[in-house]
Simulated scan of single mutants.
Amino acid sequence: MRLVAGRTADPEVLAAAVRAARAASDLVAALPEREVRRHTRALLDGVRSALQGDGDPGPSALAAAALLGSDRAQQGVPVAALLDGFQAGRSHLVEAVIAEGRRCGVPADELLDGVTRIDHITITLARRMVQEHRVAELAAARTAREGSLLTLRHLLHGEPVESLTAPLSPTGQYRCVVTAVSDPALAGPPEQALAAAGPGLCGFVDGRLAALTGTVPVLPLDGPTAVVTPPAEPSGLAPLYALARQALQAAESAGLTGLHRLADLALLTATPADAELGALLAGSLLGALDPTDPFHRELAGTALAQLAHGGRTDRTAAELHVHPNTVKYRLRRLRELTGDDPLTGGVEHTAHWWWALRSWLA
């Protein structure tokens, strides 16, 4: 039992279980990783507490399984995809326990007994999870909202819709908004803000809160990251939605918050698609710098901030909380070390430096 408790509490086992669950189901993989991690951690805690107790999942473990089933139903993840991810995570846990048990010399009979107990616990959790998934699906199906949500998902996935009803029109122009909100419990305020920009539809698509709106919504600058596309007719929304999801991922990786227009994120979205080329640029332009040297990282960070502020030293200094002369000194040292200047040259030269600096710092 100490062995199992240690493995279920191991951050590496948690991370590997999350990877296994996402690899086993494309729909689970489409969810934000932190969302899968949140539920996986709760279920591992439930397995550990059950093994340390009388062998049956307690109220907290059953509640975690119920929440997982309910959340995935609201996020539009079918129960089959949910079970694929759950079973992959369970299999990884069992394999980790067996491997560690063998390494520690635990007798085979005791290992088998432990795995059998884990199976009993996970089967109980899976039943509760499926039950709550079904309850949430039935509750949604009894409301008009479910029909609107299905329409939204069909439109954004490029699937045929028999007929559009109010508030949408086949010839209307709508903007697609994709947000970083993945927890249904936190969807209230942003959903109200998106509805205020209507007429349109709003709900969870591929695990994230999304909407079709008539105008650009007003969202807090320090709120969850969100991307809004240009307006298009319903038949042309699916490609924009796919681009918006890529842009949202890029914006989150860059630490951006609030609402951003899709076009404004074009470069930020396109460059991560070819990480090898970015690394090649970084090696070519920044080969003289050592990524483990804090001072060299300061030089690169300062140059990237200077590019972001259009070469304005005062704005760069304000962002970095340093004196303008410090900015000038760092840029001069960067020029001396690399033999090049990120701030001189044409558009292509500047873009290459921007890409190289981001890749090198990452």
Results as ranks from 00 to 15, higher is better:
residue 304 L to C: 01
residue 121 I to H: 09
residue 49 S to N: 03
residue 229 T to M: 01
residue 315 R to V: 09
residue 106 V to I: 12
residue 154 H to A: 15
residue 347 V to Y: 15
residue 315 R to Y: 06
residue 251 A to T: 03
residue 323 H to F: 07
residue 310 G to V: 05
residue 64 A to Q: 03
residue 257 T to S: 11
residue 190 P to G: 02
residue 344 T to V: 00
residue 231 P to A: 12
residue 251 A to L: 09
residue 283 G to N: 06
residue 239 P to D: 08
residue 28 V to E: 04
residue 182 S to Y: 06
residue 311 G to L: 00
residue 359 S to W: 10
residue 246 Q to C: 08
residue 56 D to S: 10
residue 239 P to W: 05
residue 159 E to A: 15
residue 209 L to H: 07
residue 195 A to C: 10
residue 14 L to H: 02
residue 20 A to C: 02
residue 14 L to M: 08
residue 224 P to L: 00
residue 15 A to I: 12
residue 3 L to S: 11
residue 294 P to F: 02
residue 333 R to S: 05
residue 88 A to K: 02
residue 97 V to H: 06
residue 12 E to H: 04
residue 293 D to N: 06
residue 310 G to I: 08
residue 258 G to S: 02
residue 96 A to N: 06
residue 255 G to D: 00
residue 206 D to T: 11
residue 333 R to C: 11
residue 217 P to V: 01
residue 40 T to H: 04
residue 116 T to G: 13
residue 230 P to N: 11
residue 336 E to Q: 13
residue 282 A to R: 09
residue 10 D to N: 13
residue 345 G to Q: 03
residue 360 W to V: 11
residue 79 V to Y: 06
residue 89 G to W: 00
residue 300 A to C: 01
residue 298 E to V: 07
residue 122 T to A: 12
residue 63 A to D: 00
residue 145 R to F: 06
residue 242 A to R: 14
residue 278 G to Y: 14
residue 348 E to C: 14
residue 256 L to Q: 01
residue 71 D to Y: 01
residue 89 G to P: 13
residue 7 R to I: 12
residue 342 P to A: 09
residue 79 V to G: 11
residue 277 L to E: 15
residue 52 Q to K: 07
residue 286 L to V: 12
residue 247 A to Q: 02
residue 248 L to I: 12
residue 125 L to M: 09
residue 233 E to A: 09
residue 337 L to N: 03
residue 262 L to C: 04
residue 226 A to F: 00
residue 193 A to V: 05
residue 180 A to K: 07
residue 147 G to R: 13
residue 188 G to R: 13
residue 235 S to F: 13
